[in-house]
Amino acid sequence: MTENILLIPGPVVISNKVQQALGTGSVSHTSDEFVAVFSSVLKKTRQVFKAGESSQPLVLAGSGTLGWDIAASNLIETGDKVLVLSTGFFSDSFAECLQVHGAHVDKMTAPLGGVVPVSDLRAALTPGGYKVITITHVDTSTGVMNDVKEICKAVKHVSPETLIVVDGVCSVGCEKLEFEAWGIDYALSASQKALGAPPGLSISMLSERAVSVAFSQKSQSCFYTSLKRWIPIMQNYESRKASYFATPAVQLINALNVALDEILEHGLEERIAKHWTTSDWFKNKVTEELGLELVSANARVSAHGLTAIYVKNPPEVISALKNMGIVISGGLHKDIQGEYIRVGHMGESACNDSLQHIQSCFDALKALEL
């Protein structure tokens, strides 16, 4: 039986080397062998986030969503004001998570397919008005990408006390992100998208300021997500000292180590450039040859790890492609949920020189005569 080509916006197709690494035998999580691998992963994570030695990497068993809980339970306390820039389903879900943890959340909602203008953000900010601002770098529900660099500049200028939190689940590894240079305080991601590893790991980076805030919290209602517990563990592992709070996902971390090697082998910039080239090729073919419209309003706000496309009768399109051996996703945005499809192109499918997977997807869409 032929395997389907997986082109959803995560999990993604993983390389043979990463697959082999996932299948290695079990070892103790305190063994010298595993401690060396985990130390390597934490150091490489800094490189991918473009973070310096003063920043703190964090790799935990869990999905990208766990990163929301980490931010909410460690960086805010009940009643703290948080500003959420909303560009779709995942931005709104992050806001809901913050509210569950007791934050007072204000949302600035972008027009469908667009982003909140930075000028509007500047007008909404006041010095010290918000404890935290959250930015979803790429909202996977719409394929819309925020200009994190410019947003960070605006926040630093108007309200430098505000902690900047970036959801990079669908951006780290395929979009430009400079944690330290842009002054981000907490960035979260996950293993199963552009990092090209299997699902199951929450991957984050914290600034010194974020660590200080987490450690100075007066009260904390979490246990597993407590940075007071986890940061010493991460520091020990990076220094090659066995440590324990909760059992790490040994095989997943081994697979992530290989995936990070593949990203860094030819340089992060080249990896990002390959994603952009693939994305531009696919988007141009879909819009120019097939005459279809994208959910993202224009190229300036279009993400490079997926493409959201308006089509008639998305369930039929998804079913037809599956019959051709290609698996894509439907829409998530509440206002247009039944009006579009989403095609993921991250990791192996985006960076393989032949682009066989994404070419097959385009050919299949073309054959449907949409």
Rank of each mutant, 00 (worst) to 15 (best):
I5T: 12
I8D: 06
I8T: 15
G10N: 05
V12N: 11
Q19D: 15
Q19S: 13
A21F: 02
F34V: 12
A36G: 10
S40F: 06
T45E: 00
F49M: 07
K50A: 15
K50V: 12
S54W: 05
S55T: 10
L58G: 02
L58Q: 04
L60F: 03
A61K: 12
G67Y: 06
I70S: 03
S73K: 08
L75H: 03
E77P: 04
V82Y: 01
V82R: 01
S86E: 11
D92K: 10
V105R: 04
V105E: 02
P111I: 14
G114S: 14
P117V: 08
D120L: 09
L121R: 13
K131E: 06
I133K: 00
T136G: 08
I151W: 03
K153H: 15
H157A: 15
V158L: 03
S159M: 07
P160Q: 15
E161R: 09
L163G: 01
V165L: 00
V166Y: 00
S171M: 09
V172A: 02
C174W: 01
F179A: 07
F179G: 08
E180V: 06
E180C: 00
G183C: 01
A190E: 15
A197V: 05
P198S: 08
P198V: 10
L201Y: 08
L201F: 05
S202R: 07
S207H: 04
R209A: 10
K218H: 13
Q220K: 13
Y224V: 13
L227Y: 05
K228W: 03
P232M: 08
P232T: 09
P232R: 07
Y237I: 01
A242Q: 00
A246T: 12
A246D: 12
V250L: 05
L252I: 09
I253M: 14
A259R: 07
L260R: 04
E262C: 05
I263T: 09
I263A: 08
E265W: 00
E269P: 05
R271I: 02
R271G: 00
A273R: 11
A273T: 10
F282I: 12
V286L: 01
V286W: 01
S296Q: 13
A299Q: 13
A299E: 15
R300H: 10
V301P: 07
V301Y: 10
S302R: 14
Y310D: 13
Y310E: 13
K312D: 12
E316A: 15
S319A: 12
A320P: 10
L321R: 11
K322C: 09
K322E: 15
N323Q: 15
N323I: 04
G325E: 13
G330M: 09
G331S: 12
H333M: 10
I336S: 09
E339C: 07
Y340A: 06
I341D: 02
S360R: 14
C361V: 08
E369W: 04
L370G: 04
